[in-house]
């Protein structure tokens, strides 16, 4: 098991002198461990509720096993926590859908998201799962920026979008997987047609 004991972002200890800061330990699905400050966790609604419900003391954090995040890998989780540490204490935006959303990507976020598309989509998936509103906003904005000025063919290529035919083939495959009889019926129908029968019945 590899353990990352240091916090994901260096914190200037002298800057917060009075209170002892509270950290939590999390573990990714590939057993990477992270220590994340309480304030950073507040950026994630999901994790924040989780730690509130657990009500750990500092001793509990050290003595009990790290909190497992089953469906996110270490590489992605590291990015997520780096982002949370950098933006800790910032207000979480509320969107009621009535006005256009204006999102700027700060330099730190742009550097953090300078990653391949596969990892970027994992990061988005994680931000959505952990409900980190602003991380989801900036990462989605990055994906949208990549679409700027592209033709439909280029968009298909960049985002691996299936065409109508592929969409239908996938649907058929899924249906058949559910109901193997469907294929048999279809084959029987084809066979009868070959034999010259006009009607299936």
């Amino acid at each position: 098991m590899s353990v990352e004991n240091a916090p994901v972002v260096d914190v200037d200890e002298a800057a917060i002198p009075v209170e002892k800061k509270m950290y939590y330990r999390f573990e990714s699905n590939d057993k990477k461990e992270f220590r994340v400050s309480e304030l950073a966790i507040q950026q994630s609604e999901t994790l924040n509720r989780l730690v509130e419900a657990m009500g750990y003391t500092s001793e509990d954090v050290e003595n009990k096993p790290a909190i497992a995040i089953e469906n996110i890998d270490g590489k992605t989780l590291k990015l997520v926590f780096q982002w949370c540490e950098h933006h800790k204490g910032e207000a979480i935006p509320v969107d009621d859908g009535s006005v256009p959303k204006i999102v700027e990507i700060p330099e730190f976020d742009a550097k953090l998201m300078d990653i391949d598309n596969g990892l970027l989509f994992k990061l988005i998936w994680a931000a959505d799962y952990l409900n980190i509103v602003q991380l989801l906003n900036v990462s989605c904005k990055k994906v949208a920026n990549m679409a700027q000025g592209k033709t439909p063919a280029q968009l298909r290529r960049v985002y691996l979008l299936p065409s109508d035919e592929e969409d239908e083939a996938a649907k058929r495959a899924a249906q058949e997987a559910q109901d193997p009889r469907a294929r048999e019926v279809e084959e029987e129908f084809e066979e009868r047609k070959r034999q010259g029968g006009n009607s299936f019945f």
Binding site: K101, C140, A144
Partner: peptide, 19 residues
Amino acid sequence: IYELSDMPLDVMENIVEYL
């Protein structure tokens, strides 16, 4: 391997909103 079409609907909405 994650792709755009794997994203949940609310994520797709979020992306399209910026287009």
